[in-house]
Amino acid sequence: MKTKEFLFKYITLAAASLSILFLMGIILSIFKEGLPLFNDINFSDFIFGRKWHPTDEPADLGIFPLISGSIFVTLGALLVGVPLGVGSAIYLSEIASTNVREALKPFIEILAGIPSVIYGLFGMAVLAPLVRKLFNVPTGLNLFSASIILGIMIIPIISSLSEDALSAVSKELREASLALGANRIETIFKVVLPAASSGVISSIILGFGRAIGETMVVLMVSGGAAMLPKSIFSPVRPMTSAIASEMGEAVNGSQHFQALYGIAIVLFLITFLSSLLMQWFAGRENRE
């Protein structure tokens, strides 16, 4: 009896501790493969170098174009996804009737589960030709198209998390505002939204993390040029897309291989910071 209790407890403890091990495994593996690169080139040349020609002799391993590709695509996605996602959340939690809300919520959840490669397919085969014709640009596979697809992709993520935050605002607060003569829209924007701000912000950070870490959509839709974008219709190569498309041809242990792991380090640090930030905001909500 006693030994069974003991065993059960420590089996669960061991299982839970594996998560630490996995995270350590991820960190160690990318650092182990990526760090040797910095024996040969210095870190700031890697981050701020303007040229990414990994297969040239000697290779140019500056990932600034890749970082800016990631950042521009992500900002573009937030420009699309935040207003639509937060707007939908406000509509669902504040304006829609219970029936409409109950019907739409599962629908949104299902959409959040659609594989990103299918969004990528849609971007390549439907959106890109449309963009090319509509704006008369040389290729529809560019920053603009990638931002739109990524933006659509993060709508369900932002909206379902924001909705939770908005629904958690107490009814009394709303009633107090309405009783003072504020109309519904004033109540939403001046009372409810500020009260839910921590949750809404953390939903946006989550959307950011999802967008900057997304691989398949940008790999298929962003065009793949490792250059600083000149306009919103320039093709770009975000970090994730560089890793995915080049790893296959990089020789195990070569400088190129190391540089791709170096990109993964940068990517990991960005998403790690954003998840810390998100937890901080989520924690702030609980503290309030």
């Binding site: 495994g25 991820i26 870490g213 691989t215 792991y261 990991f268 790690f272």
Partner: peptide
């Protein structure tokens, strides 16, 4: 929160 491509490299 870690990107899926990083899992791929891991």
């Amino acid at each position: 929160g870690t990107p899926s491509i990083v899992f791929g490299l891991f």
